[in-house]
């Protein structure tokens, strides 16, 4: 356990020194908060720009609070995922490429500790960023579109956090497997797109799919109750995360031990 904490602390320290703990939360806040703001001011901006021909009637329906929050989550689902893939693509692969992992793994470091400490450090960074982003979005949604309770926001955070955690886990998994950082980012994004596409094609049949979490969150925000399918999707996501982590450690162990020396 002490060793795990040492490894975890190193990851946190590294991501503070390379500014990830600064810029990732800021970017998440901007991504999430910009949506309600630009949506609200879109008619004003268009009017000021004078882009509308004389006599044209411009009607833009304003979203309800739940829809507005969902717009923020949609931003995080696209650009946010890109950011996750980019910041985590080198966490293991980069250390292996540079060779610094040789010095670390020749110490009596357990592979389980090495991988889960990295995983946990990225989960902590992204959940913190997500929480700040949702709070910022909540502020503007309440200001412009109407109120939502903090319970709604925390519920959205909890369940959407699972989806982001799964994406981090996928990236860590590819990190143990693939050595090129670009390929890891591409594979991570590709996998997320695949899960989302398959889910949207067979939507009703796959209501427990992790990619359906945001849809279920929307339902939760409207109905004020957690739909049972959301519990199902959450459970399945946790299961996927655990399986992927076990797979990661297994692959890392065999892959590392059989690596050809340069």
């Amino acid at each position: 356990m002490q060793q795990w904490i040492i490894l975890f602390r190193k990851e946190i320290q590294e991501n503070i020194r390379n500014f990830k703990w600064m810029w990732v939360p800021l970017v998440f806040i901007l991504l999430a908060a910009m949506e309600p703001v630009t949506t609200y001011y879109m008619p004003t901006i268009l009017k000021a720009a004078g882009g509308l021909p004389e006599g044209a009637v411009f009607e833009m329906p304003m979203p309800n609070p739940a829809e507005a929050i969902m717009m923020s989550l949609a931003q995080l689902s696209s650009l946010g995922v890109l950011v996750i893939a980019l910041i985590s693509m080198g966490t293991i692969a980069g250390e292996r490429k540079s060779g610094v992992s040789e010095l670390i793994l020749v110490k009596p470091v357990s592979y389980f500790n090495y991988i889960t400490a990295k995983w946990a450090s990225y989960i902590l960074l992204l959940l913190t960023s997500l929480l700040l982003a949702l709070l910022a979005s909540w502020y503007y949604v309440t200001l412009f579109f109407g109120s939502l309770t903090i319970t709604h926001i925390l519920g959205a955070f909890l369940f959407y956090g699972l989806w982001l955690s799964l994406i981090v886990t996928i990236s860590i998994f590819y990190n143990a497997w693939i050595s090129s950082q670009g390929a890891i980012a591409a594979a991570t994004i590709g996998t997320v797109i695949l899960i989302s596409t398959v889910t949207s094609v067979f939507g009703t049949k796959l209501s427990w799919s992790p990619a359906n979490i945001s849809g279920h969150i929307h339902e939760m925000l409207i109905t004020n109750a957690v739909p049972s399918a959301l519990y199902g999707a959450a459970g399945l996501t946790i299961l996927c995360i655990i399986c992927l982590l076990i797979g990661t450690i297994f692959i890392f162990q065999t892959k590392y031990a059989s690596r050809k020396s340069e």
Binding site: K10, E14, S98, G99, V100, E102, L103, V106, K107, P108, V109
Partner: peptide
């Protein structure tokens, strides 16, 4: 076994 071993590669890389 690694507890008893110290190792320096030819081109050591650090953090």
């Amino acid at each position: 076994r690694r507890q008893w071993i110290g190792y320096l590669p030819q081109y050591p890389v650090f953090y």
